[in-house]
C-alpha cells in the first residue's frame, strides 16, 4: 500500500497542517510517511500545496508523479493539479469555492461543501478537518479513530471547545460522503 496524497489550496486554509495531521495518523498506524511542502514566495491568499506519502514500504522519493488521492481547496489548484490524478483515484473538492466541475471522467470525484460544513461545525478555520473527514470516508487509508486520536493530541492544548469543534468538523465531512453514496 502506498497512498500519495496531494493537498492544495490557498495559503491559510490549513493545507500544510492537514498534511501534517495525515502524517501523524499514518505514523500511529506504523506506516512510513513523508511530507513535502511547496515553498517559495508563498503568502496568505496565495497558493500552497503539499505532497504526503503514507506507505507500508520504504518511501524512496518524497515526490510523486501521479496522486492516488487529491484534496483540492480552491479553483486555481484544481486547474493546476487536475491532470496529476492517477486514473481511478479520488479527487475531493471544496465545492463551496469551486464552481467548475472536473473535466476528468476517469477519477472518483467528491464534491464537498466544505466551507459551509466548517461554519456549521463552528468556524471556517476547521475547513481542512472537514476535508480530512471526507477523505477518511472516501479513501480508508487511515481510520476515523486514529484521526480522532491525532486531533485530540493536536488540538487538546487549545482547549475543549476547539477540540470538539474539530471533531465535529471531522464527523460532518465523513457523514457527508457517507450520505452521498
Amino acid at each position: 500500500m502506498e497512498e500519495q496524497v496531494l493537498i492544495a489550496g490557498f495559503g491559510g486554509q490549513g493545507v500544510l497542517s492537514l498534511g501534517k495531521i495525515l502524517c501523524f495518523a499514518g505514523m500511529k498506524k506504523d506506516y512510513n510517511v513523508s511530507w513535502l511542502p511547496s515553498y517559495g514566495p508563498e503568502v496568505r491568499g496565495g497558493t500552497a500545496n503539499c505532497q504526503v506519502i503514507v506507505s507500508d514500504q520504504e518511501i524512496a522519493s518524497p515526490m510523486f508523479e501521479a496522486s492516488t488521492a487529491m484534496l483540492i481547496f480552491n479553483e486555481p489548484s484544481l486547474h493546476k493539479f487536475e491532470e496529476w490524478a492517477r486514473p481511478g483515484s479520488a479527487i475531493l473538492l471544496n465545492a463551496s469555492l469551486i464552481a467548475s466541475p472536473l473535466t476528468r471522467q476517469d477519477v472518483r470525484a467528491y464534491y464537498v461543501p466544505a466551507s459551509e460544513l466548517a461554519e456549521q461545525a463552528g468556524s471556517l478555520q476547521c475547513l481542512n478537518i472537514v476535508m480530512l473527514g471526507a477523505y477518511v470516508a472516501a479513501c480508508h487509508t487511515v481510520d476515523e479513530e486514529t484521526v480522532q486520536a491525532v486531533l485530540t493530541e493536536t488540538f487538546g492544548a487549545k482547549g475543549e471547545a476547539v477540540l470538539q469543534m474539530n471533531l465535529r468538523a471531522l464527523d460532518l465531512g465523513k457523514t457527508y460522503i457517507q450520505t452521498q453514496k
Binding site: 512510513n32 513523508s34 511542502p37 518524497p62
Partner: peptide, 10 residues
C-alpha cells in the same frame, strides 16, 4: 538541498 531542509519525515 532545499528539499531536505523543507520536507518532514519521522
Amino acid at each position: 538541498d532545499g528539499t531536505l531542509g523543507q520536507m518532514m519525515e519521522p
